[in-house]
């Protein structure tokens, strides 16, 4: 969250908050997450479509999706 990402980011997982419940792993429709050593990780970032199911279902708010905020110029401008 604090580092500027040179590539498109994947959801950030705070391992201090993650309880390893596995709900995010179950809810991800693309199998992007996995439990490793009782902590959720984005094991397959190429599969992540940023839908946000993992962020919404996490009971401890350990998962966050970073967004860039941009102004889109009007068409023709």
């Amino acid at each position: 969250m604090t580092q500027p990402a040179p590539h498109l980011p994947v959801p950030l997982i705070d391992h201090d908050r993650c309880t390893g419940c596995g709900l995010c792993v179950d809810v991800c429709p693309h199998g992007a997450l996995a439990l490793i050593h009782q902590h959720a990780v984005v094991a397959h970032p190429e599969r992540c479509d940023y839908a946000g199911y993992c962020e919404r279902i996490c009971p401890t708010q350990a998962i966050e999706r970073p967004f860039q905020i941009v102004i889109v110029p009007p068409k023709g401008a």
Binding site: M1, Q3, E64, R65, P66
Partner: peptide, 11 residues
């Protein structure tokens, strides 16, 4: 906030 251009909903 150049270091914070990636904003999360929590932030």
């Amino acid at each position: 906030l150049p270091r914070h251009r990636w904003a999360t909903q929590s932030e």
